[in-house]
Design a binder for these strands. Structure first.
Lengths: 372, 372
DNA sequence: TCCGGTTTATGAACCGGAAAAGCATTGTGC
DNA sequence: GCACAATGCTTTTCCGGTTCATAAACCGGA
């Protein structure tokens, strides 16, 4: 009996949304201030139509009552949802591994928080689901726009988003962004720096352990790598593709190091694989850096805690996310992304967008001169 | 001129929400089906009030038109927001490092996606901001509830959330959860297993590199560690507190290994610190595992790619997140969390909640018998 | 044929805020 | 002194669903 009562009470008063402590509405503020709803709306939104005096009084009362605009009501009258979406489409187990996304997200949120905009995050298994999600979110009016990551060649998401008319920003190279603005950094330039550096150290056989071949940025790196190697006059430049996990990184390294002649330097597409590769090399009796040089991508604390600390390509990922968010907010607000358009438009990118400061090569202990 | 025109066009038709392709509303469906708005609502929500025949017709038409319920409108009439909140309160740079949160999030979302509920994620600098965020989200009707993580002793968030009446679940030990349901795993038991294992291997001086001392689970582990060591008859059991970063993990390890007599085994609170500790040991000429055994917490691929692979405490983090989400959804829906209440209530936890399957110790190459 | 009861559908109110239209009051220019 | 604008506020309508009161249609039984 008492159990049933408890259950009933709980259902009736505890958890149902409608039963929560009633929040003041704009009408409460209006009544209290002795003005109309409309006036309160004007006052609180900083729009003309009320005197400075009334505005101040209304503001004070709203503050006092702890009034907050009901988001549903606001967006129902055609305003914004004040949220943007971010869909991650890698399997969960890969996500946990890479600091990249968490850093990206924290950067995005830094920017969003400033505009008191929220982030809707969802992890999905495939592009199909991702597209369905965009439709749903946009259809339900749940988001004002989205940031697209992990662009692929001929990415199906781009035309869908374009057709939906949903504001969106691509975090990645503009070549695949269609008409969407893109925020990206020049990976080819960094790769040039890396290869140049290794060549200068005397390395002639440089290999690469790359990420998912379907991703556009992997392809761009692949191509740039081939070009750079050729330009630097390096011999063969084997590239192994992986799924970014340590396991595959280790396997690829083992394969590369078993070949004859074996490479004297390996460039990895992330740091987890570089660490795995380092372990494999040590396991195989190859000293790093004297017998093998290693370069990691997307520096994280991980690169610094292993011995030797890894030479890494480092970039400010949070800043990258923040930048993407900033551009998206501008698009959402209907502002032209003018400044960036000039900078970004030149090589066929979308109508707006911006280039990030390029990543930098940070030499540490895992690279050294090589002489055969 | 063309630039200006482009800008105008964009503002007028491109990005403003109002100008997007008009989505069908319930009224459109009603008109098309030749029934009233109300009937459509009943039909689509599976509520009585329409005939099976009409229901089917309305459903078909809604489908055909691609109708989706406008979330704002729906939640305005007192329904749910169909989103739950998760606020992370560690500095961004720490978040990127730990796979834990990303895995937790992916688990949460697995569960939410099933109920087509979204996740609002935000990273904040401190508890102050976190609390403000709960107020805002709840006040604006943006979320139906929240998952609280990283509980501290006498956590200020708990009473605030209780007072707000916002459904919430604590991911952590129920001792700090007040009246909120908690989802947790028995860390003391695992620690007992770990210490017992090391003691059985012949270790007499076991040290611990712990995480942030302010966190409740750190305290629980601290206390359990002390108790287990005493129970196993181990000598001193120094504990070094850190901020979870590799740097501090390395520093703490250096300190511990410089003491005389030095510990023969170290248990770390996460894997990044364990990896850092491994490097430090190797740097100091101590072979792992013959001279020093290492145990990591929260196994990630990282533990497996280093040499030797790390013995680690492993648990199913995504499942943990999924579980928390499931309990929260129940609370939100006003269902009693009955089954769990029995299991969870026994030791003073909230009115509901559930215990996770305990973590397991996974011996790998970094632990070995020790004989002085 | 009439009657109570159920099923099925309708119309209107309502949620909370935004914004257009309406309406006094005061001020300005000629 | 009058036309006209600006100011400051109110009224009204609207956004898109939910829900309640109500009514029409239907049913079997007396």
């Amino acid at each position: 009996m008492s159990l049933i009562r408890f259950s009933d009470v709980s259902r009736a008063a505890g958890t149902r949304r409608g039963a929560r402590v009633k929040r003041p509405t704009i009408a409460d503020v209006a009544r209290r201030a002795g003005v109309s709803k409309g006036a309160v709306s004007y006052a609180l939104n900083g729009r003309p139509g009320v005197s400075a005096e009334t505005r101040a009084r209304v503001r004070a009362i709203a503050q006092e009552l702890g009034w907050r605009p009901n988001l549903a009501a606001r967006s129902l009258s055609g305003a914004r949802a004040d949220a943007i979406g971010l869909v991650l489409c890698r399997p969960a187990r890969f996500l946990g591994v890479e600091p990249f996304f968490m850093e990206l997200i924290s950067g995005v949120e830094d920017e969003l928080a400033a505009g008191s905009c929220a982030l809707m995050l969802q992890v999905v298994p495939d592009h199909q689901a991702e597209i369905a999600l965009y439709r749903r979110w946009w259809g339900e009016g749940r988001v004002d726009g989205a940031i697209l990551v992990d662009l692929r060649a001929a990415d199906p998401r781009v035309p869908v988003v374009e057709r939906l008319g949903m504001p969106a920003v691509v975090a990645g190279h503009p070549s695949g962004a269609g008409s969407l603005p893109a925020v990206w950094s020049d990976e080819a330039a960094v790769l040039r720096e890396v290869v140049g550096y290794l060549a200068a150290l005397g390395h002639r056989r440089v290999a690469r352990v790359a990420g998912l071949p379907a991703l556009l940025h992997t392809r761009i790196r692949d191509e740039a790598f081939a070009r750079c190697c050729a330009a630097a006059g390096l011999a063969g430049h084997p590239v192994a593709h992986t799924d970014y996990t340590g396991e595959e990184g280790a396997r690829a390294t083992r394969l590369l190091l078993s070949a004859r002649p074996r490479p004297t330097a390996i460039v990895y597409d992330n740091d987890i694989m570089a660490v795995a590769g380092l372990s494999v090399a040590q396991e195989m009796g190859l000293d790093v850096p004297t017998a093998l040089s290693i370069v990691a991508w997307d520096d994280s604390p991980l690169s610094q805690v292993v011995r030797p600390p890894l030479t890494a390509v480092t970039r400010d990922v949070p800043a990258y996310g923040a930048h993407a968010a900033r551009v998206l907010l501008r698009v959402v607000r209907g502002e032209q992304v003018r400044g960036e358009q000039v900078r970004g438009g030149r090589d066929g990118g979308g109508p707006g967008g911006a280039q990030e400061p390029p990543a930098r090569l940070l030499p540490r202990g895992s690279t050294a001169p090589f002489s055969s």
